[in-house]
Write a protein that binds this DNA or RNA. Structure first.
Lengths: 129, 129
DNA sequence: CAGATTTTGACAACCATTTTCATTCCGACG
DNA sequence: CGTCGGAATGAAAATGGTTGTCAAAATCTG
């Protein structure tokens, strides 16, 4: 019953960056998989609910997913050029969020933190030829 | 030429929380303003480009806008119940983002940080009657 | 193997946002 | 004044990612 879901998960695992549902769907079809777009969406949602993949929203409102190596709380350092993503921990940030929240009387603090930059490969001297 | 834009900006200023374009539009109409949805979208984008308002995406992909008091870099502590938003500074986070980025060879670091919680008003003992 | 249940996926429906395009404003200029 | 031209406006249509529908297919159960 989880065949499709696993297939989606596997496809995601083959990428180091965040991919959109449409993207994953297109790639699976390219590789000959027989799967419908609807199913990809459902699989992705199920995986996200289960916490097996991380989700975030691009600036243009698309949901993008990524299979992360660790299932403990972490954040992402994303290359804004190629999308390559590194998982990073930030104990300091966790504490800061908690502190800032309670200072203002907020409880049940959660937070979203994403860091963007240009990775070393992408910022390497651009070849003109 | 900026009449409409100012009207939108003013409407936004009257709220302590992030509002969607549709939301702002509805409210302006309620107060008798003669304005089109298209114009609200355009005004909001212009204001965002100019840096006069802050934008972020809700979990369901809507863009929401807020007129913030300061135009220096800051983050938001948002009540997940009522939406009330407090502007917070986080020097520690800024440094952390910068450090983590450069440790991995990333340059031109930027980041997004939002903190969510339940504010004191909303977490107050819920009256059953 | 029949019947119940879940999963799947083609297609239609949604809905926030954008685009299109005709109209209205408004200042510049004759 | 009158009108020409560009900017702004907004109603309506188009877009596009995502979700809902529903019948067919796969899988389970006894």
């Amino acid at each position: 019953m989880t065949t499709r879901r696993d297939a989606v998960h596997d496809t995601l695992r083959q990428s180091e960056s965040f991919r959109s549902a449409q993207d994953v769907y297109a790639e699976m079809r390219l590789h000959g998989a027989k799967i419908g777009l609807t199913t990809v969406y459902r699989a992705l949602q199920a995986l996200a609910d289960k916490g097996s993949v991380d989700v975030l929203r691009t600036d243009d409102g698309e949901s993008v997913y990524r299979a992360c190596a660790t299932d403990t709380h972490h954040h992402h350092l994303v290359c804004r050029r190629c999308g390559r993503t590194v998982e990073v921990a930030g104990p300091a940030v966790e504490r800061w969020a908690e502190t800032v929240g309670s200072e203002h009387g907020f409880t049940e603090i959660t937070h979203t933190v994403e860091v963007f930059g240009t990775c070393s490969t992408c910022s390497a001297p651009a070849k003109t030829s």
